[in-house]
Design a protein around this nucleic acid. Sequence first.
DNA 1: GCCAACGTTGGC
DNA 2: GCCAACGTTGGC
Length: 291
Amino acid sequence: MASESLAEAADTAGSPNYWLLKAEPDSRMVKGKDVKFSVDDFEAAKTSPWEGVRNYEARNLMKEMKRGEKALFYHSNCKAPGIAAFAEVAKEAYPDHTAWDSAHPYYDPKTKQADPKWFMVDLAFGARAKHFVPLALLRFIADAPAAAPPAGLEYLGADGVAAIKAGMDLVTRGRLSVQRVSAAAWGAVQLLADTGGWDALELAPKKKAAPKKAAAGAGAGRPARAAAAAKTKAKARKKKRGSDSEDEGDDDYDEEEEEEVISKTTSSRRKRKAEEYEELPTPTRRARAKT
DNA sequence: GCCAACGTTGGC
DNA sequence: GCCAACGTTGGC
């Protein structure tokens, strides 16, 4: 081949990480622009900048991405959410210029070119999932009490099931638009996408399944999710931060320090809040404006 | 610093 | 279209 492959590039720097990034395949207007970006769009574009991410945690993850690392391309906020394709990081994090474009759907008036706050990476389209891997399937596997794979998916093995249970945030952290995926989970998803075999499974309760919206307030609808969410929430509230505390927070937040100096009351408090969240927060829907 | 209200995400 | 989940704001 011409130059070294993307995969090789990633290998040279220790064990690679795996990622999952979301995009919206359906049209949706934001500030007069369509933010739709489907697998078809991605395939046609071949490479695409992942602009518009406006969430600290998602941004921090993007900053960790190395050229050549692999990513799952996920269809979000649509009829059939799930993994549609495989991709690779083609360009490492660089300032997201759309943040200071006032006409852009994800314009952030608080950021300045001199001190970029939001970043993006470029992703290169790899291949479509031979079999689209529905979120419902991953959830089905993750929520199943059994360690053995469901009928038809024996090829996954108990470890494949375990990997999906433990290595994917999709089920428990639905709102995060950029996620880390374990190497094992990546392998399991690839196996699923290559092999299929879940057509006979009853993955999700069809809409017709009784409307149990009855229960007032209580989490009647989705026990597993509710439980997981509660856990996440409790964790967040406890502020037990410090998982991976990149060097991140310091360098790119000088601007916040200015704010702090300028106003001591309200804005100071807000500043602290934002800083705290900076290393854990969650998502911003990820989509991109077509160009 | 805690917590309720609010706004957005995103599955269904 | 509905509504659960949860990040974020802002009152106290």
